[in-house]
Computed example of a mutant assay.
Amino acid sequence: MDAGASALQQSITLKQAKKLVQCMAHEQSFLLLSPPGVGKSEMVYQAAAEAGLPCRSLLGTQIAPEDVSGVPKIVGERSVFCPPRILLPEIPQTFCLFLDELPACAPDVQKAFYSLLLERRLGEHALPAGTWVIAAGNRQQDRALVRAMSSALVNRVTILNLRVDADEWQDWARKAGIRADIRNYISFMPDALMREVPHDPQPFSTPRAWAELSQALDMAEAAGILSRDTRRALAFGRLSAEDAAVFCALAEETVGTLAPVEGYIEHPDTLPKGETARWFILNAIRQNVAAGRLGKVKPRAVARFLRGLPTEAQLTLLTDLVEQWGALGADKAMLALLRTVTKQ
């Protein structure tokens, strides 16, 4: 059963999911689904830490059924199953139990979790009152070796389909010390934060990939070995090829701090002179127009900006977005461009 695909449009952000977890995970079990690299695990650890709960995790791909139900022990004339300490600590203290990669578990392991997810119980042993039980994993369409989940398992959890939110990520990235050049790139190209999972096993851009690249660049810079070649090797080893190429080209042009998109429209003379950086800014403007995020720019500034660009650049910005640019007040500029192109 593909639980992720059927509820894809009912997705929520990591911040929204964290609030739900903190609100009701003491009573209901959750299954967090998303593509790889979104930040599910970190969100669970953060939610537990904020609630003052220790977090214990099990990796679904590395456990057997007996790691859940426990091994038998003879007590008198009866056998008693002894659950592992990580699931049932000797001191009955409330904690957060994180079952990572649950959809990748073998069917018999998934079955072993049934009573744990629904009743907070391991055989005859109950978890400490108030304990959280949270599972996470990837979706079948993510090509991440995910197994089909039984209806019995799906019916025992609340499934939350997670999506990446660029604004939330920027807030986290500033606090986490992510490099300014990476934050600038994502602010202009929000779609680059999370690319589609490729059909072939090759690097692709995710929040985790950008964070790891930031750390790698910092370490290479601190060691004095960050050069054009090492930057490209690290970027292409982590990101989607198109993001790696543009990110590195921008770094090589030494663009510096990028201004907000609206600033380039209101002051077109501040557009970078370098071809790559200039293309990058124009493409970002096009994406913002398509997403309807430039409603605060004055029509006069929009018209002046378009008229000041070369014909080829205007055509690139306007293609398939005539209606959106018209709503921003670019009607006269588009008419002038039409006359130029048709030589009327």
Rank of each mutant, 00 (worst) to 15 (best):
E275L: 14
S41T: 15
T131W: 00
Q287P: 00
H267M: 12
F30I: 03
D200L: 13
F280G: 00
D229V: 11
N288I: 00
K298E: 15
S205L: 09
D2Y: 00
G60Y: 05
C105V: 07
D165K: 04
G130V: 09
P272D: 03
Q110C: 03
F95G: 00
D2M: 01
D100I: 01
A192L: 08
P272Q: 03
V154L: 13
E77C: 08
T230R: 08
V341S: 06
W172H: 07
P299C: 08
E266V: 13
R183Y: 05
K73F: 12
S79K: 12
F113A: 01
K175H: 13
P201N: 13
V302A: 05
V197I: 09
V75N: 11
E119M: 07
S214T: 03
Q28D: 09
A49T: 09
L14F: 04
M24C: 10
C248H: 04
E119V: 01
L122W: 02
E252L: 12
E275G: 06
R286Q: 14
A166S: 12
G292C: 07
T158C: 11
P203R: 03
P201C: 07
A336Y: 03
T254N: 12
Q22E: 14
L32E: 03
A5V: 10
V261G: 00
K15C: 04
F188S: 08
I74T: 11
A220T: 08
G70E: 02
G326I: 06
A333M: 05
A135R: 02
Q314Y: 03
L306F: 06
G37H: 07
A303K: 13
N138R: 01
K15W: 04
I178Y: 00
H26G: 13
A216S: 14
P83M: 09
T230Y: 08
Q344I: 13
G263N: 14
L87Q: 02
A216M: 08
A330W: 01
G274I: 05
D67T: 09
E50L: 10
P268A: 07
F247A: 04
P260E: 04
L14P: 01
F280Y: 10
L335M: 11
L32N: 04
L217R: 03
Q344W: 10
G130F: 07
Y185C: 01
L239H: 03
W169P: 04
A233W: 02
T342N: 11
R300H: 11
D2N: 12
I225T: 14
Q170P: 00
Q324V: 01
M194P: 00
E266P: 00
A104D: 12
A104I: 05
I12L: 13
I178D: 00
P103F: 01
C82V: 15
T131A: 11
G76T: 09
N155G: 12
A209D: 06
A7N: 08
L321A: 11
F95V: 01
P92N: 10
L99I: 15
